[in-house]
Design a protein around this nucleic acid. Sequence first.
DNA 1: AAATTGTACTTTGTATACAATAGTCATTGT
DNA 2: ACAATGACTATTGTATACAAAGTACAATTT
Lengths: 227, 227
Amino acid sequence: MTMDEVLPLRDVVFNTLRKAILTGELKPGERLMEIHLANRLGVSRTPIREAIRKLELEGLVIMIPRRGAEVAQITEKSLKDVLEVRRALDALCVELACDRISAEEEQQLKNACEAFARATETKDATVIAKADVAFHDIIVQATGNQRLVQLINNLSEQMYRYRFEYIKDENRHDSLIEEHRIIYESIVGRDKRKAAETAKLHIDNQEKSIIRQLRLEQEQSAAKKKQ
Amino acid sequence: MTMDEVLPLRDVVFNTLRKAILTGELKPGERLMEIHLANRLGVSRTPIREAIRKLELEGLVIMIPRRGAEVAQITEKSLKDVLEVRRALDALCVELACDRISAEEEQQLKNACEAFARATETKDATVIAKADVAFHDIIVQATGNQRLVQLINNLSEQMYRYRFEYIKDENRHDSLIEEHRIIYESIVGRDKRKAAETAKLHIDNQEKSIIRQLRLEQEQSAAKKKQ
DNA sequence: AAATTGTACTTTGTATACAATAGTCATTGT
DNA sequence: ACAATGACTATTGTATACAAAGTACAATTT
């Protein structure tokens, strides 16, 4: 018996648009026109509008009065702002995890750590990204703080598009594995200071890579505009 | 010439409902029925619904499928979660302020610090609360991180109702003034460690007071239910 | 030829109408 | 008397219709 839970259309639309923005299918600056989207998704304007209201508060689209919504631009400044906050929250995460992680979660974290190392061998960015998310999810969940879970997820969202390029870089794989290992061991060893320090380092490395990626894209779009 | 900017109705409704929830005019658990609200505010259901979608994502209301929205309950757990995050973010704030505060902002902070001390003498909770917000706002703004500003404001929101009781407690006034003074001096003296520590202490004190308040309220409502 | 005005079209903002569902109360049968 | 079923009502979910505003393009005038 399949209890195929029927979500309200607004949530279906919200998830669809969210995914489209995060994967880059809808590009920054692109306009979201209600009738157009309604036709494409086969619903009326009402659920589209309600979905846009949620995307607006989540920062994925911006509203221009009497002109409608468009996909939010990511600037280097806004990315730095997000990562500055994440650095603090990721550090908080691992510190709380040191206090609160259960024996079962410790085992899961160990498995996830090893699974990540194996995933890098596939050289498939999608597989690696999933293994990476799985590892960090266990830590975030171990904090037992729902609000923190929600905030970290929202902040991670903002840079989904760029994380992929970072994951692809094979030269970084060994240090990624090493960082994960240190974080795992620090948490198990209840060494808050070291865990927090490594978590911050982990973000710093991501920041460098993502900003390089972002500059590249902006150069490209600038060149395209000229041509 | 008054450029009385006409906000979309959904934003007017959003702000109205938000304020009503934060001031306690709409109580936790109370249902938000669309037609009812539409009649009361003299608009149609559409802007009401869009406002509710935003309140939903902000965590001020929760949706029950096919039953509509109701004002979110604040539990002791959810409050502790919020404050745990705030402790980290407030510490980040003062640290960043140490690095980035301008000479002008330093002067403003000095004024706000003195203004707060004077405000406590009025023994008027509204006046004191305003002076307190003004002081902290300068620090948050000094970080130059828009995302951080947004997050702190959203998190502060969640406990607006209870902060008032905290501010009222005259026994705490002297230590509040002292904490503000230490934070001010640490920022000016670029002492990140001390600034962060005091900021955390500041939150800890709030937490104790607010949780006491929350327990009191819950006892009262439990008693009322029995009677 | 350039500028300005007017008109038509596109798109959002708001209201209302219709559909579906869940909760409530009464009625009926055991 | 109690349980179960069915109808009615209240409320949300969705679609559409109408109003207002902003934009682009063409025509006209200087």
